[in-house]
Structure formats: structure tokens, C-alpha cells
């Protein structure tokens, strides 16, 4: 039978249960801390690798922050080969998505031309906004010269065809790419 519900009994039980749980979680946290950090790093490296190729340095170690026009800053991973810069991978985001933030990794060469883009994280509607990972939509951005291309959806006066049924997601995606491109044009050349 359970112990009687007297005040000391209840207090002792709750204290013991929470204390034991807390200690156990502390151990698990210590144990998984290293693997979690490695998993996060691997995800980041994979994203950098898929937007930039041919570098022989460690872009994560040489990471710097690029200021944006709105006073924010973007994480920027420089790629170098034999000491000379071959481009950057910029982690950029937009908060104007249909649900939650959209995180992208944008690869630029030294002239600022877009080489590749990968979506790191998004929570857009499956089947609609999620199509921003599709070849057809992404292709519009590739090899775009930032000086000659207006990286906005056509509805806003730009040159990008929005995904049908997902104007908001397309707009957010374009905004994130434009943010990276613009800050590189404005501040990135010095690095």
C-alpha cells in the first residue's frame, strides 16, 4: 500500500523524486554534451561544403560576423585555397516565413555571385512552402549577378518567380538571400 499522505511524507517524496531526476539528467547532459556539439558542427560543415567547394582551410575556425544594414549580423565562413580567398558561405535567415524562421546557407564567390544555396532549417507548409528546396525555384538564384539581378519576387517588383501558392515563403527566402548578398556587397569585400 502507498504511504499515508502526511505532510512530511509528501515533502520528502517530492524532494527525493526531483533530486534524483535532476542528478540523473545532469549525468546524461554531461554524457551527450560532446556528441551534440559534434552533430551541430557536422550539420554546419555539411551546409558549407554543399555551397562552396575547393577550399583547403577550416571555414568554421575562421568564422567572422558580417554586419547588415539593419544593424544585425550574419555568420560568415570564408573559404580559402592556399591562402587566397575563393569565396564565402553566409548563414542568413528571414523571420518573414509562413511559420517560423527560415535559415539558409548562401555560397558566394569573391565577386559576390551566388554559387549555391541550401536550406538549413524551415518550418513552412509541407508541399507548398517546402518546395523552396526544389531545383526549379533555387535555380533562379544561381549564378545571379547581384548588381544586375533584383532578388525579390515578381510581385514586389523583382525577378524571382514565386512558388505557386507560397508567395510568403518565396518572399522570405528571397529576402534572406538578398540580405546575405547585400551585406557581402557592402561590407564583405574587406575580408
Amino acid at each position: 500500500m502507498p504511504k499515508p499522505s502526511t505532510f512530511p511524507n509528501m515533502v520528502i517524496t517530492l524532494v527525493v523524486v526531483t533530486a534524483v531526476s535532476a542528478v540523473a539528467l545532469g549525468f546524461v547532459y554531461q554524457w551527450t554534451k560532446e556528441p551534440i556539439a559534434q552533430a551541430r558542427l557536422a550539420t554546419q560543415l555539411k551546409a558549407i561544403e554543399s555551397v562552396m567547394s575547393g577550399y583547403d582551410n577550416n571555414p568554421v575556425e575562421e568564422k567572422f560576423f558580417l554586419p547588415t544594414a539593419s544593424g544585425d549580423s550574419l555568420a560568415c565562413f570564408p573559404g580559402k585555397k592556399g591562402g587566397t580567398s575563393i569565396g564565402v558561405a553566409i548563414k542568413t535567415k528571414s523571420s518573414k516565413g509562413y511559420s517560423g524562421d527560415i535559415w539558409l546557407m548562401v555560397g558566394l564567390d569573391t565577386t559576390g555571385t551566388i554559387r549555391n544555396i541550401v536550406v538549413i532549417e524551415h518550418k513552412e507548409t509541407p508541399g507548398l512552402g517546402s518546395k523552396m528546396t526544389s531545383e526549379k525555384f533555387l535555380h533562379q538564384f544561381l549564378n545571379a549577378n547581384p548588381a544586375a539581378t533584383d532578388l525579390r519576387v515578381k510581385k514586389d517588383g523583382g525577378t524571382i518567380d514565386a512558388i505557386s501558392g507560397a508567395t510568403i515563403s518565396s518572399r522570405a527566402f528571397s529576402e534572406a538571400v538578398k540580405l546575405a548578398s547585400d551585406s557581402y556587397q557592402a561590407y564583405g569585400k574587406d575580408h
Partner: peptide, 16 residues
């Protein structure tokens, strides 16, 4: 189950 008093049963279960 035998050392947990009835009245704090649910909170204890939830913590576990």
C-alpha cells in the same frame, strides 16, 4: 509506487 503517498502521486509521476 509503494513509497509515494497518494496525494503527490501525479506530480511525482510527471517528474519521472
Amino acid at each position: 509506487k509503494n513509497v509515494i503517498p497518494d496525494k503527490v502521486r501525479i506530480p511525482s509521476f510527471i517528474v519521472i
